[in-house]
Design a protein around this nucleic acid. Sequence first.
DNA 1: AGTATCTTGCGACTGAGTCGCAGTAACAAC
DNA 2: GTTGTTACTGCGACTCAGTCGCAAGATACT
Lengths: 157, 157
Amino acid sequence: MRHRARGTPGQGAAGRVAAGEEVFRRYLASQKLKMTGERRRILAEVFSTTEHFGADELHLRFVDKRIPMSRATIYRALDHLVKSGLVRRVYLDQKRAFFEHVYGRKHHEHMICLSCGKVIEFSDDPLEQRQDKVCRDLKFRPLRHSLRIVGLCQKCQ
Amino acid sequence: MRHRARGTPGQGAAGRVAAGEEVFRRYLASQKLKMTGERRRILAEVFSTTEHFGADELHLRFVDKRIPMSRATIYRALDHLVKSGLVRRVYLDQKRAFFEHVYGRKHHEHMICLSCGKVIEFSDDPLEQRQDKVCRDLKFRPLRHSLRIVGLCQKCQ
DNA sequence: AGTATCTTGCGACTGAGTCGCAGTAACAAC
DNA sequence: GTTGTTACTGCGACTCAGTCGCAAGATACT
């Protein structure tokens, strides 16, 4: 069982952004879409943090920096980032979608503390393997999955 | 690995409703809430099917039967049913909440076919045990969890 | 029956996310 | 670099699930 804390990337933020931009550019080209200043700025902002964030939260970061950016553009760019595989949409609560960048990070699941809201990420190979077995048994071809465990973290128990 | 198809309850619908009503009544009393005609009718309707349903869908069933029932009442009753443990709120897609009654049924997870929308329920003890182990290792006390596997069912592959 | 308390229905509201449109920017071809 | 095509942005209006406040009505306790 492996548990990697947030904020320990294998490379610096600048490197991640540059590599991510290249991947994004390839995705855009493959879809006959264009790389624009807005998309570049959104990508950089998304890769500048390792925390989960909501769409409006991301929008606010631009507002705070006095960088003009409409909500619609944020939503549209996030859709593309998800489709490109750079970003994952996760449902931590039922109110709204959260996003996290995924590029160069191992797949992981989430534990969410009911009391303090803390989100713990974890990954576990035996768990994944067991899921695959269940899918094989039911002849289901899994494309993606998400496991959400809600409970109490060590501090809040 | 166990896979139980929908629609094979251990007892008839009438028995399930009666037993469920008793549980619900106890929950209501414990919360100083009242058993009303609306709540009884909603409970009966919820237990009349083993399929997943949305709140508005449930509301429509009453409208169709010319039984007066407001949307607000449906939402409020569903909240209570969930708190009483009789009903589970599940997030099959990201648009809205679905509900399924849980009383007398084994805990299960969902596979969702991207192509035809079919929902397959399954349960697997080794999977549950492995989740528990991961929680123990991280000192997290799990209260509930949900695993959603999205992919293609046998027919759609 | 009387009364305190909870419930209902209504309609207005919220908040995340979407959409159509008119003007603007990216990019490929010359 | 100019041009033409196509995609993009911002705006504001819209949608849709879900929530809320309130006045009138139902429940349950004594």
